[in-house]
Design a protein around this nucleic acid. Structure first.
Length: 733
DNA sequence: GGCACAGTGGTTTTT
DNA sequence: CCACTGTGCC
């Protein structure tokens, strides 16, 4: 256990060993956030303070959840499978599967990803004969999701104008459609499980009693509903301890519902006494951090943080002014080549930009120079057309009422079912109020016959695969559906075929990882439903062109959480970064600035900033001013590679002229050898004790024996103290 | 059912 | 400028 706490800095140690109270950890970029989160969990369990089953840890991405589990299993010799660690959506899915009846859902309900949801909305508009010019599907999708994230069902939405009233009606219709089809979109996962817990008191009590510690990663990214969900779960009697880790300065997802205000609200509503700042950065050199600090200082209403490092100032930040975007790209390529010549790994170099369109010039320049590169952000595995098609067949096996899946493959590969037949079918489905699949038997005539053949195909598939292990099931469906033949016949179908084979691999992987008994689950296709949920919830890695050492290209958003030795940040121009759509509102501009902060803090050793006098945008040359964010970096931190025009002198030279700020942190005394778990007097590491003056605390370490015996106690808001047992009166509690 | 053409719009994105 | 959507024709 002493290993667990070794090498933590003071604030980290404090955070990890806090007594069971609510806590807000303000974790700066590169300050060891994930480490604190996972060590906290390991500490709670290994010190015997709580059972693994009493922990709920929630993240935003599958990647983060996986990393947490991986790290945890190296720290603890326990099986992490029973633990509730996952994404908000993943945990909600788990909850809804376990209580599908109470939640009003079919056992094998399907999950719609954003694309599926959009398709479902388009289909809805079509069946209702509504002009999609007047109600753009995308806008409607956004509207519906916004209502759900506000916790509002159609009845609760206040509509003051005809347009909104109409949209609310469509929201209601959409809900009806989803319910009929037994499908659930992303926002619905959250809202449904929120409502389930809210309405079902015994169930709520059960989970409130069970989860004693709720830990939240990237708390600044939570939306309103997620915050309410956490409040509900933590609000039992006694309440659970909420341990929220986040960085308000790195909140860059406001545009999709994230509410930085949740951090302040949390502190206020929960009377959080423990606000701990992790400000020591282990990633970047001093100049880079100082630039980041200087930039973010221009934002108002921050919770406040200042990053520092024990590393030196390092090199100055290089700034380059180009004539054009092409010129900028050419320069970047030259610098990259130089770095590589100097021994840098290409994969340690990142080219960042504000918007995807900017990658084009960079790619062109890299390609011409023959430098291997990799662009993040393309299609992901489960989003590919051929995979979606295969999944649609699988979904129909699990749930024939899934009209989205039905519509997708009823005529793919083509089997003579045209738009006309589908229209007839949809009308009939509307009349009978049944799913497309269930409506087929009602049809007569030729469309009825061909559609019936399709239904028979699905039914055959269900029967034939009932006892097959998942990978073989998938294989069989690929063959029998005609998908494989279709892509075999296609000229460009080679890669798609490979992807389809990879889907079998993904299924095999899933079975292995879920450690479930495939035999037991295969019978009723429950494992299949789990796999489909997995496919919807985790779109897979951003397509990796693995193998080759390649320069990394991505948007600043995509770079969050990553780090590189050298970072090129291009297009630092007004209108681009900050983006023109964000400049008008203060809120928008501040988010852009946070984005800039994120970008800068990606760099470990070297940071290059560049902008161009002219840039091709939408087929026209644009002349932008250089970004205000550039002006916000103190001059002594930079070195201009081109003469800085309106801003006076060129750089002073290389590092050495600048001392990084040092916190007034004494080095923590070497961790004392911690005695065995059980100490004399019933005191042990992790033991909850109370002190007349300092209140409740947790024993973190102990040393000495007899009259000299001392323990180190973390009293949370009152700090960490060494106490002599002979002197201090500590009551176990 | 698939291809050619016109038209449109064009931050950021995970689940 | 370019990528994507929808329409219309064969």
């Amino acid at each position: 256990m002493s290993d667990l706490l070794a090498n933590l800095n003071d604030p980290q140690l404090q955070a990890v060993t806090l007594p069971p109270q609510h806590a807000l950890i303000l974790a700066g970029a590169g300050s060891g956030k994930t480490r604190v989160l996972t060590t906290r969990i390991a500490w709670l369990i290994s010190s015997g303070q709580c059972d693994p089953a009493a922990i709920l840890a929630v993240t935003f991405t599958n990647k983060a959840a996986k990393e947490m589990l991986a790290r945890l299993s190296t720290m603890l010799p326990i099986n992490t499978r029973g633990m509730w660690i996952g994404t908000f959506h993943g945990l909600c899915n788990r909850l809804l599967r376990a209580h599908h009846r109470d939640a009003g859902l079919a056992q094998l309900f399907q999950i719609l990803d954003s694309a599926d949801q959009l398709a479902a909305i388009k289909r809805l508009l079509k069946t209702l004969n509504i002009d999609d010019e007047k109600f753009p599907p995308r806008e409607l999708q956004h509207f519906i999701n916004a209502q759900k994230e506000a916790g509002l069902r159609p009845d609760a939405v206040e509509a003051w104008d005809d347009y909104t009233r109409r949209r609310v009606e469509l929201y209601r219709e959409y809900e009806g459609q989803c319910q009929r089809e037994s499908v659930v979109d992303f926002a619905e996962l959250l809202l449904r499980s929120y409502e389930l817990l809210e309405r079902n008191e015994p169930l709520r009590r059960h989970y409130q009693r069970r989860f004693r510690h709720i830990l939240v990663d990237e708390f600044q990214d939570t939306n309103r509903l997620q915050y309410r969900w956490l409040k509900l779960l933590a609000g039992g009697d006694p309440p659970a301890c909420l341990f929220c880790v986040g960085d308000d300065d790195q909140s860059i997802y406001r545009f999709r519902g994230a509410e930085v205000g949740n951090m302040r609200d949390f502190e206020r509503e929960f009377h959080v006494a423990n606000v701990i700042r992790l400000e020591q950065n282990y990633r970047s050199h001093g100049n880079i951090l100082d630039a980041a600090n200087a930039i973010i200082r221009h934002n108002a209403g921050r919770l406040g943080k200042n990053l520092w490092t024990e590393q030196g100032a390092g090199e100055p930040i290089r700034v380059f002014e180009a004539f054009s975007d092409a010129d900028e790209a050419r320069w970047i390529v030259e610098e990259v080549q130089q770095l590589v010549r100097d021994g840098a790994l290409r994969s340690d170099i990142a080219l960042l930009y504000r918007s995807n369109a900017q990658s084009r010039v960079l790619e062109h320049a890299l390609f011409s120079a023959g430098i291997p590169y990799r662009v993040y952000g393309g299609l992901r595995f489960f989003e590919r057309q051929e995979i979606k098609h295969a999944l649609a067949y699988l979904r129909l096996i699990a749930n024939p009422d899934d009209d989205t899946a039905f519509a997708r493959v009823v005529n793919f590969p083509t089997r003579g079912i045209g738009a006309r037949s589908i229209e007839v079918l949809q009308d009939a489905a509307r009349t009978y109020n049944t799913s497309l699949y269930a409506t087929v038997p009602h049809l007569t005539g030729k469309p009825g016959t061909t559609l019936a053949q399709f239904v028979r195909l699905i039914e055959d598939l269900r029967r034939e695969t009932a006892r097959l292990p998942l990978p073989e099931l998938v294989d069989h469906v690929l063959e029998r559906s005609g998908l494989r033949d279709h892509y075999k016949a296609e000229k460009e179908g080679r890669e798609r075929l490979e992807n389809l084979d990879e889907l079998i691999g993904a299924a095999a992987n899933f079975v292995a990882e879920s450690q479930a008994d495939p035999e037991a689950l295969a019978a009723d296709h429950a494992l299949l439903a789990d796999f489909l949920a997995h496919a919807s919830l985790e779109a897979g890695e951003h397509q990796a062109e693995q193998g080759m050492d390649a320069v990394q290209l991505m948007t600043v958003h995509a770079a969050k959480g990553l780090e590189f030795d050298a970072v090129f940040l291009s297009g630092l121009e007004e209108g681009l970064f900050p983006h023109e759509n964000s400049i008008l509102e203060a809120e928008g501009l501040e988010e852009e600035r946070r984005l800039m902060y994120v970008a800068v803090t990606r760099a470990r050793k070297r940071l290059y900033l560049s902008f161009a006098q002219s840039r091709m945008l939408h087929g026209q040359a644009r002349y932008n001013l250089r970004s205000r964010f550039l002006e916000e970096i103190p001059e002594p931190l930079t070195r201009w590679l081109t003469p800085p025009k309106p801003r006076g002198n060129a750089a002073t030279g290389f590092g050495g002229y600048y001392e990084p700020p040092r916190g007034a942190f004494a080095t923590r005394p070497a961790a004392p050898a911690v005695p065995s778990r059980r100490e004399e007097g019933g005191l042990h590491i992790g033991q909850l004790v109370s002190h007349a003056r300092f209140g409740q605390g947790v024993i973190v370490a102990a040393e000495g024996s007899g009259a000299n015996a001392c323990v180190q106690v973390n009293f949370g808001a009152s700090g960490i103290k060494w106490l002599k047992l002979a002197v201090a009166k500590l009551e176990p509690c």
